[in-house]
Structure formats: structure tokens, C-alpha cells
């Protein structure tokens, strides 16, 4: 008995986590998938009834806005955060004496809760008392910056706050990447008289392709999961102009009492994540086995 116990301790240690993952991750995904195929409203029903929830979802103008916003927000957020992060990393990589302090300043927003970030930017972007009023006070009487309350522009305030929060992190990723480029190649290029900008565009940046991929994965993951920032900054409004799939799902699940819609929108979110993550994980795991 003790011998058996000794041999199987590792498995026994892993067992509770294994069971937990099976139930709370995979079992729960299965439950949500199942419910998304039923006519559940306030209470879950378990008779499968085809794709009716998905039909309702894609017929809903609110989901239309939320799903469209995801792509507008995701695209701008990812592209700008990556470009800004790369620029900051290259600027910081020029033997800056105060690099440590500057890096700390660029990166601290990442330690904040999105609710804090949203609260701060909501105040700054407040048309009556924030930036708009301040600039008007400087004498620019006609200056207008009302994106927060403008249904066509509000989504861009979320982009601004999200970039403020995450671009420093992208910078940290790229900076680590810049530092890991083979210095011999760079020296050789310099000896050959190749100009600095060419060294970056032709040698350094192409060799950082894996880091671009990582940054893309992380940022797209952040974009799809964005929930707190929207709630704190705009509450999904004006109207539902800044809804994202995450806020749509929450509204259906906890305030509208429409479990079927909540489940089907959650499944769509998961599919978007998987469409990005699965090829990445697959290539990662494969390259490890080789």
C-alpha cells in the first residue's frame, strides 16, 4: 500500500487540479455551448433546438454594434499599441542614461486596474470640466472634444485609454527583443557603413518577428476580453454605441436575464479567441517537440 502510494504521489498531487480543469474549464465550456443551442431565456433549458440563439444574436442590432466595435477597437488598439511600443523601445535603446526611470514611467499603467484607468480617463475626457474646458480656458473658445458623449466617436476614447494602459508593456516586450538581437551582426553592419535606420529596418526588426507575434497575441487577447474599461469609461454608452461582445454578454447574463443570448455571445467570443490562439499554440508546441 505505501509502495503504491509512493509511486503514485505525483499523480495524486495532480489529480485535484486535473479534475478542476476538466469541470470548471472544459465542462463549463460544454455547458455554455449546450445552452447556446437551446431556447433558454431566464432559466436554462436543456432541449437542443438548433442555432436559434445564434440567429437571434446576428439579427440583433446591439450585437451588430458590439461585434463591429470589437474589430474597430481591436484593430486600432493593436496597431497603434504595437507601433507606439516599437517606437518607444527603439528610442529607449539609444544608451539613455535615465532608462530605468523612464521605463518605470511608461509601464506603470499596466499595474492599474482597468476600472481605475477608466475612471481617470472619464474625468479627463469629461467635456464640461475636463480637457475641453481646460483648453477653452486657455483662450481656444471653440475647442471641442466631446468624444466621450458622442455616439460616433465614443469607441475611440476606449482605444485611447486602452493604448495608454498597454503600450508600455508592448515597449517592454520589444525592448527585450532588441536586446536579444545578435550584437555581432549589428557591429558588422556598422563596420560596413550601413546607416542606422537601415540596420533597424533590414536587420533588427525582421529578426524580432516572434516578438511581434507574441505582442499581437497578447493584445488581441486583451482586446477581446475588454470589459472593465468599457464599463468604467462609457458604461457601453451613449446608448449602446460602445458595447463590446464582453459587455453584451454580461448585460444578457445578469441584467436582461437572457441566458441563451449570453451563452451564444460567449461562444462567439471564444471562437474569436481560438481562431487566434490555436494556430499560435499549435506552432509553439510543435516547434518545441522538434
Amino acid at each position: 500500500m505505501t509502495k503504491w502510494l509512493e509511486e503514485n504521489t505525483p499523480k495524486l498531487v495532480l489529480a485535484p487540479s486535473f479534475v478542476a480543469v476538466l469541470i470548471f474549464v472544459y465542462g463549463f465550456i460544454a455547458w455554455t455551448a449546450w445552452v447556446s443551442l437551446t431556447r433558454s431565456r431566464l432559466l436554462p433549458k436543456y432541449e437542443i433546438d438548433g442555432f436559434i440563439q445564434y440567429d437571434r444574436l446576428f439579427a440583433s442590432p446591439r450585437w451588430d454594434t458590439a461585434f463591429g466595435n470589437l474589430f474597430v477597437f481591436g484593430f486600432l488598439f493593436i496597431v497603434i499599441a504595437m507601433v507606439l511600443g516599437l517606437i518607444l523601445a527603439i528610442l529607449l535603446d539609444q544608451n539613455i542614461r535615465t532608462e530605468g526611470a523612464i521605463r518605470t514611467i511608461y509601464l506603470y499603467p499596466m499595474a492599474l486596474s482597468m476600472i481605475v484607468t477608466g475612471t481617470a480617463w472619464k474625468w479627463i475626457l469629461n467635456p464640461g470640466l475636463g480637457l475641453e474646458a481646460t483648453v477653452r480656458g486657455w483662450g481656444f473658445e471653440t475647442f471641442t472634444f466631446d468624444w466621450l458623449v458622442n455616439p460616433d466617436m465614443a469607441i475611440y476614447t476606449i482605444v485611447i485609454a486602452a493604448i495608454w494602459q498597454s503600450s508600455g508593456f508592448v515597449m517592454a516586450l520589444f525592448l527585450a527583443g532588441l536586446r536579444s538581437v545578435d550584437q555581432e551582426i549589428i557591429k558588422a553592419a556598422q563596420v560596413d557603413g550601413i546607416p542606422t535606420w537601415r540596420v533597424y529596418t533590414a536587420i533588427i526588426i525582421p529578426s524580432m518577428a516572434p516578438i511581434f507575434l507574441s505582442a499581437f497575441i497578447v493584445l488581441s487577447h486583451l482586446a477581446i476580453k475588454s470589459f472593465d474599461l468599457v464599463i468604467a469609461l462609457t458604461g457601453g454608452g451613449p446608448g449602446y454605441a460602445t458595447d463590446l461582445p464582453a459587455t453584451y454578454m454580461y448585460a444578457m447574463a445578469f441584467s436582461r436575464g437572457d441566458i441563451g443570448q449570453a451563452a451564444s455571445s460567449a461562444m462567439i467570443m471564444m471562437m474569436v479567441v481560438f481562431a487566434i490562439i490555436v494556430p499560435y499554440l499549435y506552432s509553439e508546441l510543435r516547434s518545441k517537440d522538434d
Partner: peptide, 15 residues
């Protein structure tokens, strides 16, 4: 299996 679980959007387990 664990690794995969890191990436799921939590909305899918909320209900």
C-alpha cells in the same frame, strides 16, 4: 489542457 485554459475568455464560464 491547463495552458489552453489560460486563454479562454472568462465569459464562457460565467453562467
Amino acid at each position: 489542457l491547463m495552458l489552453f485554459g489560460c486563454f479562454i475568455p472568462f465569459q464562457v464560464v460565467l453562467l
